[in-house]
Amino acid sequence: MTVSVSHITHIDNLVHIISEGCLWSDAKRIELGLVNQNIGYSHIKQRRLLRPVNVAAGGMIGQYVPFNFCPRSVMLYVIHRGHADFQGGQDRVLHLISDTETISLSNEHCFFTDIHADLDYAEQIDDFSRLSELDIQRIINEKYWQDFKEEKQAEFLAYESVQWHTVKRIGVRSQTVADDVNLLLQSAQHKPVVQVRPEWYY
Results as ranks from 00 to 15, higher is better:
P71D: 08
N38Q: 15
V193Q: 10
L50Q: 13
Q90G: 12
L185K: 04
A27L: 00
R92A: 05
Y201F: 05
D91G: 06
N38I: 12
D99K: 05
A188C: 02
P192S: 03
L157T: 06
T100V: 09
D91F: 08
I97E: 10
A154W: 03
I136V: 14
H116R: 11
P71S: 02
P52I: 06
V196D: 01
L131S: 13
Q37C: 14
D126M: 08
I79L: 04
A56S: 07
Y144P: 13
R92Q: 09
R81Y: 05
I103L: 00
V177L: 00
I30N: 11
V74T: 10
S129V: 13
E133T: 15
H83D: 13
D99H: 09
H7S: 03
R81G: 11
H165N: 14
H80C: 11
V3E: 13
F156R: 03
S106N: 12
N107Q: 11
Y201K: 00
L184Y: 02
G88L: 07
I170M: 00
S174E: 07
Y159P: 07
Y201T: 07
S104D: 03
P192H: 01
Q63P: 05
N141R: 14
P192V: 03
D135C: 10
D120M: 15
K168A: 13
F86Q: 09
A178E: 07
N182C: 08
K45V: 10
W145R: 09
Y77N: 14
D91V: 02
E142K: 14
S132A: 15
H190T: 12
D179V: 11
Q175D: 05
N107T: 05
L134P: 12
C110L: 00
V194G: 00
C70N: 06
F111A: 02
F112I: 08
D12Q: 14
I103K: 06
I115T: 15
R48T: 07
V181H: 07
L49T: 03
R169H: 13
D91I: 01
Q137D: 15
E160V: 00
H16Y: 01
V193K: 03
F86E: 08
G62V: 01
P198S: 01
L96P: 05
V181K: 01
D26H: 02
R72F: 08
G59Q: 03
A56P: 01
T2F: 11
D179K: 03
C22G: 03
Q63R: 02
I11V: 02
I97W: 10
I30P: 04
D114L: 07
V78W: 12
E133G: 11
G88E: 10
L183M: 08
I79D: 04
S132M: 12
Q63Y: 01
D127S: 09
E108W: 12
N68W: 06
Y144F: 15
I136M: 14
D126I: 03
L14F: 04
E150D: 13
G59D: 05
T113H: 04
Q63D: 09
I170Q: 03
C22R: 02
W200M: 02
W24L: 05
L23G: 01
R138M: 10
I139Y: 06
G88M: 12
E31Y: 10
S42F: 13
I18K: 01
V3F: 10
V177H: 00
R51E: 06
Y144W: 14
N38Y: 09
L134W: 13
S4Y: 10
V167H: 03
L32M: 11
H109W: 01
Q124H: 08
H10A: 08
T2K: 15
F112S: 06
